[in-house]
Write a protein that binds this DNA or RNA. Structure first.
Length: 477
RNA sequence: CGGCGUGUGGCUCAGCUUGGUAGAGCGCUACGUUCGGGACGUAGAGGCCGCAGGUUCAAAUCCUGUCACGCCGACCA
């Protein structure tokens, strides 16, 4: 009976995945719409997740020598226009400020869609000598891209992100930094978000506007669609030439710097929802769960129950992010509520438990229940949180592997995408015409050319000419 | 930006075809009984029907426009 109502509240993912996603976002109170299309309120439950992502990612950045800075949100039009590919890539989706107060501006200002141009302007003034290199900066901020179609966390007009921008003396250093940051993202996704990713390089068609090469981590969502979850770009000296960023080297010669940029966004929260969520709602990996354990007293008005529950909560606060639900809802209500919010562990404590000196712990991800003596509480909670973090990654990896296929020719390729959703590995000749043809026919794009290459066949899946690369293909968000 | 759909108490929706005193369930507030998977009783509060024009004696309902949200495409993190 109770289950029935729950199912009504959240659309089953098998029935309508998009609706399921929206239901979870709303029911878990992660986000709200506002009167401006594509601009969202990230609610306390959602923002707390973002703060945990920020904190743990930022620590990893700093271990590699990154320093945080803050640059303005406005870019003068003339500055944006300096790098040709870059401006062409972003022009269709920038928002413009044309007035200051009542006065029209002499030059309109774009609201940053990304800050390469500002960092270039900054580095141009800061970097003079090889002694000023490398510059390794990052900023946490929001950017604006005037998207036509918006979706909570996955595509909004304003979104939160971090963007790292570096300048180096040599091409080699820039390439190393590009790959280093990609590895930081990949490691973060797997170890913190429990999301397995494919690391690889984007094809020229899919690479960032203005980049020499773009690297990406690609994750597979529960519905079999791909989500680009972080990117790292090597700009070579293209921006340096457009913005005239030069330094004097040890031999007293002028050289252009080599630059990189790398970013990840609140989209990661969307990925967590779509990789780990189920028909009861959100399911958070412990490392990013704002509340990791919720204590639920049973018959809380009975003598001694509430005080015992609070005592347990205080104990758990020393080893985890713990909370207690003392609202006067029924226990069943609270169970469902905590599940919708994705809280990893639930501790039930009632009169019967208190008498027996134990409690019940229930895992959110697989709903396994454990009877635990109160002496062992902290140890068991710590152990379960650790185990859950690991097993959620394993489960997501098994799901991804199960939905990763191989196609050796166009018939197989067609059949796979017509019958299934997931990653399809296939060989490619390197010609954009084949990418275009595949996209045209199957609405599928190249996700990346993975670092871990396999030789599946000698010829391109599309045109049968000699193959150069194995590519992951998929329908993308 | 193209196609389809939806805007009515906090939420989900009915009412619109055929204009005539704004409805239901849930939620909310108070009190009481409950409490191990969304409990129940009693009493209450809450809406110029997305917005702007128009038609009409009279508009939630008909017409025009506009904005927003959702889904599917194209573009993108």
């Amino acid at each position: 009976m109770a289950e029935k109502k729950l199912v009504e509240a959240i659309t089953a993912m098998e029935e309508d995945f998009a609706q399921w996603y929206t239901d979870v976002v709303k029911k878990a109170e992660l986000l709200d719409y506002t009167s401006v299309k594509g601009c969202m309120v990230i609610r306390p439950a959602g923002y707390a997740i973002w703060e945990l992502i920020q904190k743990q990612m930022d620590e990893r950045f700093k271990e590699t020598g990154v320093q945080n800075v803050y640059l303005p949100m406005f870019i003068p039009e003339s500055l944006l226009n300096k790098e040709k590919d870059h401006v062409e890539g972003f022009a269709p989706e920038v928002a413009w400020v044309t007035h200051g107060g009542l006065q029209p501006l002499q030059e309109r200002l774009c609201v940053r869609p990304t800050s390469e141009t500002l960092f270039c302007d900054y580095y141009k003034n800061t970097v003079h000598s090889y002694r000023d290199l490398p510059q390794i900066c990052n900023q946490w901020c929001s950017v604006v891209r005037w998207e036509k179609e918006t979706r909570p966390f996955l595509r909004s007009r304003e979104f939160l992100w971090q963007e790292g921008h570096t300048a180096h003396a040599t091409a080699k250093e820039a390439e190393e930094r590009t790959l280093q940051m990609l590895n930081v993202y990949a490691d973060f996704c797997e170890q913190v978000l429990a999301i397995p990713v494919i690391k690889g390089r984007k094809t020229d068609k899919e690479k960032f506007a203005g980049a020499e090469s773009t690297y990406t981590i690609e994750a597979l969502m529960h519905d079999g669609k791909a989500l680009q979850s972080g990117t790292s770009h090597n700009f070579g000296d293209g921006f340096a030439k457009a913005f005239d960023i030069q330094y004097t080297d040890k031999n007293n010669k002028l050289q252009y710097v080599h630059q990189t940029s790398w970013g990840s966004t609140t989209r990661l929260i969307g990925a967590v929802i779509m990789v780990h969520g189920d028909n009861s709602g959100l399911c958070l990996p412990p490392k990013i769960a704002p509340v990791q354990v919720m204590v639920i007293p049973i018959q809380q008005k009975k003598e001694g129950v509430l005080s015992k529950a609070e005592e347990i909560c205080d104990r758990l606060k020393k080893v985890s992010r713990a909370g207690i639900d003392i609202t006067d809802k029924s226990p069943g209500w609270k169970f469902s509520e905590q599940e919708m919010r994705g809280i990893p562990l639930r501790v039930e404590i009632g009169p019967k438990d208190i008498e027996a000196g134990k409690c019940i712990i229930c895992r959110r991800d697989n709903r396994e229940k454990y009877e635990v003596s109160l002496e062992e509480l902290e140890n068991k909670v710590t152990e379960l949180l650790d185990r859950m973090q690991v097993e959620m990654l394993e489960r997501a990896r098994a799901h991804r592997d199960k939905h990763t296929y191989v196609a050796k020719n166009m018939d197989e390729f067609r059949r796979l995408f017509n019958e299934k959703t997931g990653f399809v590995k296939a060989m490619w000749c390197g010609d954009q015409a084949c990418e275009d043809a595949i996209k045209e026919e199957l609405a599928v794009t190249s996700r990346c050319m993975p670092f871990e290459q396999e030789n599946l066949s000698e010829v391109c899946v599309c045109c049968n000419k000699p193959a150069k690369k194995m590519v992951y293909w998929g329908k993308a968000y």
